[in-house]
Amino acid sequence: MIATSGPPRPHTRASLAAQLRALGVRPGGTVLMHAALRPLGFVCGGPQAVVLALRDVLGPDGTIVVPTHTPENSDPAAWRNPPVPADWWPVIRSEMPGFDPAITPSRFMGALAELVRTWPGARRSDHPEVSFAALGPAAERIVAGHALADRLGERSPLARLHDLDGDVLLLGVDHGSNTSLHLAEYRQPTPPRQRCGAAVLTPDGDREWVWWEDIVLDESDFARLGVDLEATGAVRLGPVGAGTGRLMRQRAAVDFAVDWLARNRRTEQA
């Protein structure tokens, strides 16, 4: 009888840690992780095992950062997926709860990001639309001072990660989810701008709707940008669970994206 292979073995905290080490995660480093759990296959322990595996590799001196964005806390006039009727806009602006870093959930960033947000000792930035959470010794430095009118720019956790020469880890997702590339948009000479709004907490614990001017964020070409970035050899690819992990130095990715956007978007808009 010809032997046939059985089903694949489940992925575990230990096996994931071994794969992350092989991918090049640096002990003591700072890692911004974007992840989707399903492409990783069956993980014994689910998102908890993934976070524990990454912490095992980073060690006690390492810091995990995740996006904990709340895109529903934004101007409803700009909603497209799906849009809402115009007569709903005043109601949403007057009734949306003010963003509270301690309790406002992040419903669209995935189970791994939400787990890190609620992990004991995690710190979260206080931007009402695009907050980040961090866990580790560098957490407070990364999330502090997140400016309202500089969502993903020089006064955001992305720039602090750049200061620290941190890494970006994509698990089961591609560069369309690589938030760090937005920092390159802020480093263009004259990025287009728009009016933004969100509900925030007031010092007395009440809420109010605030407006600010910020750049127009556009990730529509990030997947294509990522293909060109990977062609330079700046991104390490390898298996993580049943999926693909991508690891890169954030500085290298952002610096490449600054030049790429200057060439490609200018050409397309000319």
Rank of each mutant, 00 (worst) to 15 (best):
M1A: 10
P8R: 08
H11D: 03
H11Y: 10
H11W: 14
H11T: 04
T12P: 08
A14E: 15
S15L: 03
A17G: 09
A18W: 05
A22V: 00
L23K: 10
P27C: 09
V31Q: 10
M33C: 10
H34V: 06
A36C: 04
P39A: 01
L40S: 03
G41C: 03
P47R: 15
V50Q: 12
V51C: 07
V57F: 10
L58G: 08
L58E: 10
P60N: 12
D61G: 10
G62P: 10
I64E: 03
P67I: 00
T68I: 00
H69S: 09
E72M: 08
S74G: 12
A78L: 12
A78Q: 15
W79Y: 14
R80L: 10
P83Y: 06
P83A: 11
P83D: 11
P85E: 01
A86I: 01
A86S: 11
S94L: 09
E95R: 15
P97I: 03
P97S: 05
P97F: 02
G98N: 02
F99P: 02
F99E: 04
F99V: 03
D100W: 04
I103F: 10
P105I: 01
S106G: 04
A113H: 06
G121T: 09
A122C: 06
H127V: 00
H127E: 00
V130D: 05
S131W: 05
S131A: 15
S131T: 05
A134E: 06
A134K: 12
L135I: 07
A139W: 09
E140D: 14
R141F: 12
V143P: 02
H146W: 02
H146S: 01
A149Q: 00
R151E: 12
R151G: 11
S156F: 06
S156A: 05
H162M: 13
D163H: 14
D165E: 15
D165A: 13
D167Q: 15
D167P: 05
L170M: 08
L171K: 10
G172Q: 06
D174N: 15
L181Q: 14
L181V: 13
A184W: 07
Q188V: 04
Q188D: 00
P192M: 03
R195D: 08
C196T: 02
G197F: 06
A198W: 06
A199I: 02
L201G: 06
T202C: 09
D204K: 03
D206S: 15
V210M: 06
D214P: 02
I215T: 01
E219A: 14
S220D: 08
F222P: 00
A223D: 15
D228K: 11
D228S: 11
A231L: 09
A234I: 05
A234Q: 10
G238P: 01
G241A: 04
A242Y: 00
A242C: 01
A242V: 01
R246K: 15
R246A: 12
L247G: 08
M248V: 13
M248I: 09
Q250W: 04
R251W: 07
F256S: 04
V258E: 14
T267C: 01
E268Q: 14
A270F: 04
